[in-house]
């Protein structure tokens, strides 16, 4: 409630109102200025609404394109599209493809990345807004934002050459000691590096900046009077965060995380490099290998010559499109229009 009031207070409504009645008793100036300003008004309206329509149309057309290209291949498909783990398109006359494993590997790696990144992002955002001294907070935030500027191919190289060997002992420990949990049992790969586990860690680093940036933004907007309410009761810094900052920023934090999830779902090249392919189906373990939607399509991109096999990949792309769309829409709903990240 009170947030709304504050947001509206500096708005233009209050300032414009008194102008209207004062200009109406002076009718001479109005007709002289009207034509040009009215033309400007309609031109601007056309530009603004035109751009809006364009964006919506572009999204709709992309969806339509994917659908049109995918349908013939889906009709020719010999396997169940949703439940089959295989994806063989070598013979255009005998297509047999399904998205079961693509979906599982995509979701497992992305959700694992989210689980790793969310607490870290929360900590960084709170540190930047509540703990770091002002001189430190700006450059530090800048460095975190820089993580987003690193090309994903670099993440891929770093992931497979540096990170994978470094975290293999951790993977081995988890596999040995917590192997009875399905997530940590031995997967469909003969080794423990280059797995969904490795890919998830790389993805976590990649989505950290967006979650941090959105959360930091929202936490910094915590109304002053909320913070004062907590402080006046004798709240320590952490208690102020718990009583004022977190309740206020929670929806923004979740929305930021959803945006991060959307990014992880669609990440291509780093995943393609880091996660090893596997010949056998996904076994619901983090130590499985395989392809995500995006990495599979990228790996096959050089062979898009015949329309029917190509359509098979496009139908996989369509599912990814819908998946990220849903996740982003979810982020908007949770944020309630508060965030525009």
């Amino acid at each position: 409630m009170s947030e709304r009031i504050e947001q509206r207070a500096p708005g233009s409504e209050g300032e414009e109102d008194p102008i209207v009645p004062s200009s109406s008793p002076v009718p001479e100036s109005t007709p002289r200025r009207a034509p040009s300003s009215r033309r400007g008004e309609s031109v601007f309206r056309f530009l603004a609404s035109g751009s809006g329509v364009l964006v919506v149309a572009a999204i709709a057309l992309i969806g339509l394109f994917l659908l049109i290209q995918a349908v013939p291949s889906l009709m020719a498909n010999n396997a169940n599209f949703f439940t089959s783990p295989e994806f063989s398109t070598g013979d255009a006359n005998n297509l047999s493809f399904g998205i079961r494993d693509l979906f599982l590997v995509t979701v497992f790696s992305s959700v694992f990345a989210l689980v790793l990144a969310m607490p870290v992002a929360l900590g960084v955002a709170l540190f930047l807004t509540n703990y770091a001294p002002k001189q430190l907070s700006r450059p530090f935030a800048y460095v975190v934002d820089l993580l987003a500027a690193v090309p994903s191919i670099i993440y891929g190289l770093w992931g497979i050459l540096v990170l994978a060997p470094a975290i293999e002992p951790i993977a081995r420990w988890l596999n040995t000691n917590l192997g009875w949990i399905f997530l940590f049992r031995t997967g469909n790969l003969p080794v423990l590096s280059g797995t969904i586990f490795t890919g998830g860690v790389v993805l976590a680093v990649m989505i950290l900046p967006i979650i941090t940036a959105v959360s930091r933004e929202v936490f910094a907007q915590t109304p002053r009077f909320q913070i004062e309410a907590a402080k006046a009761l004798g709240a320590t810094r952490w208690e102020v965060i718990r009583m004022a900052t977190l309740p206020y920023g929670r929806s923004g934090y979740i929305a930021g995380s959803m945006l991060g999830l959307g990014r992880a779902l669609g990440e291509t090249i780093a995943v393609l490099i880091v996660i090893r392919a596997s010949t056998s189906p996904m076994t619901f373990s983090l130590f499985d290998g395989g392809y995500t939607f995006a990495s599979l399509i990228a790996s096959a991109a050089s062979e898009f010559s015949q329309p029917l096999p190509t359509g098979a990949y496009i139908s996989a792309g369509l599912v990814l499109f819908v998946l990220t769309f849903v996740v982003n829409a979810l982020a908007r709903v949770i944020a309630g229009g508060k965030v525009n990240g």
């Binding site: 409630m1 009170s2 947030e3 109304p223 009077f225 909320q226 004062e228 309410a229 907590a230 402080k231 006046a232 009761l233 004798g234 009583m243 004022a244 309740p247």
Partner: peptide
């Protein structure tokens, strides 16, 4: 502050509590 209560100009209950 724990022994001195304060009431502000703008009513500021914790809105979600």
């Amino acid at each position: 502050r724990r022994t001195i209560g304060m009431v502000f100009q703008m009513p500021n209950p914790f809105p979600t509590m």
